[in-house]
């Protein structure tokens, strides 16, 4: 938990600045997600204690909104579009291939913390269907056999050669 002490200090200050305000939980959770990259169990307990609300309430809100992540995300976030157009064009097979190549389920993160795989709603690039995004970079008109090559680009050089 390197540097986590400072992060919790930051969170403490954030909680102080919102304390006793109605509806403080949302901005504090958003802030916490910004500081830590996710709202883990420890972070949520810290927020509950700081704001004087129950962990049930914090967890309820955190799981209601998809913008909050309970677990740390990987360095590269792979979002595969399952919107109508992409789905019809076979994006499920792209997602399945990614899952197979990375050995993680949808929503999971690789043990080395490099990749997180997510399914998303429409990305607004239906003309390129099926589409996925890796940290903001768009890949369109995909076929499953392209997947290993694309992933390799994001692997460290040594591993990519091996």
């Amino acid at each position: 938990m390197e540097g986590s002490k400072e992060k919790f200090e930051q969170l403490r200050a954030l909680i102080e600045s919102h304390k006793d305000q109605p509806g403080a939980l949302m901005p504090v959770l958003q802030g916490a997600q910004g500081i830590f990259g996710c709202v883990s169990e420890d972070v949520q307990k810290f927020i509950a204690d700081g704001l004087g609300v129950t962990l049930s309430e914090v967890y309820g809100v955190a799981t209601f909104y998809s913008q909050f992540s309970l677990h740390p995300k990987g360095e590269y976030l792979i979002s595969v579009c399952l919107g109508t157009a992409c789905y019809v064009k076979g994006s499920q097979s792209i997602l399945d291939k990614l899952s197979e190549v990375l050995h993680i389920p949808v929503g999971g993160t690789t043990p080395d913390g490099r990749f997180t795989l997510e399914a998303t709603r429409c990305l607004g690039a239906c003309g390129l269907a099926p589409v996925m995004m890796i940290n903001g970079e768009v890949y369109g008109r995909l076929t499953p056999d392209q997947v290993p090559g694309i992933i390799a680009k994001y692997q460290p050089a040594s591993e990519a050669q091996a």
Partner: peptide, 28 residues
């Protein structure tokens, strides 16, 4: 959920997740 949180001031259960996946559970 209401009786636990508001009457008893305990609040160990609540709605988690959303939509079809919503369930009344303890956190985590």
């Amino acid at each position: 959920v209401s009786v636990c949180a508001h009457v008893q001031n305990v609040g160990v259960i609540g709605p988690v997740h959303r939509g079809f996946k919503t369930a009344i559970e303890s956190p985590w």
